[in-house]
Amino acid sequence: MTRPETSGQADSPLAQTRRALRHLPGGARALTWPLVALVLIHTLIIGLWVAPSTPARDAVGQDRVREYIQPWFQQNWSIFAPNPRRVAVTFEVRAIVEDPDSGNKVHTDWVDLIDNEDGIVAGNPFPARTAKISRRTADRLHSAISDMNTEQRDWLKASYTDTPVDQLRERLADVDGGAGTSDINRYMTADAAATRIATGAAENIWGEDGEVLHVQYRTSTRPAPSWDDEERTVDDTTRTEREYGWRAATDLTEEEIASFAPYLDQGGDWR
């Protein structure tokens, strides 16, 4: 029996396609639609990940979706919609420096590393990512703290200079209510980074005066005024200060200190 498309309409595009396909390996043809299905499933999972929580995602299971997405396909709905900053932050550091001759321990003044980072960005269409080191660390601290209750925030103000700072993790977790383990872990990571940034800055700024024993950081937020408010700038809005205790200075090698030094000069004359 002759099929219609190979007899009467031998030159129709469909018949030509059919004939050309016969020359392909059978495996390639058999895999076509399964591969298309795979692409669609992948797209569907990405959709579940970026969309707000839905019954569909709950049915699949958020953890299972995360397992597939993280880390290579990690993305966020804001991937095509960058959010302009609405909050200005400060990230100030100071240190206790011991004079090697007299043994006097001196509290230094606070310096705001965000002033440095503002200097990196100002007038520069292609700023390096160093313009975000302290800023993003302050953001992380604030986001980790946001759900903490008063008791937990009081614990942040405790100093950990001799006792390991890891005990702070247990103190925070022992508090009833407030932020949970995930927020506490995020705080501890940001705290470790903040302590290291403070040490790197202190060694370069005050290291010549003696040994940097302890460091401390503090942060603040202030909201940008709305567009309608033409009178005020971000400097006119009220700061919300956040305080944290002293931390033992991080042990850094000479080379680490030296290679961090250019960061503090990138913002120009900010000190």
């Binding site: 390096a128 160093t130 080191i133 680490e256 250019p262």
Partner: peptide, 30 residues
């Protein structure tokens, strides 16, 4: 472009001067 704009800052961000990012690296999904 990304590599060029960060070239002079490479040690601070990702090299020997990036000791400050070590806590972030320890929890990185990669």
């Amino acid at each position: 472009g990304l590599l060029l704009t960060n070239f002079t800052s490479r040690h601070i961000l990702w090299g020997t001067g990036s000791f400050w990012a070590e806590p972030y690296r320890e929890v990185n999904a990669f």
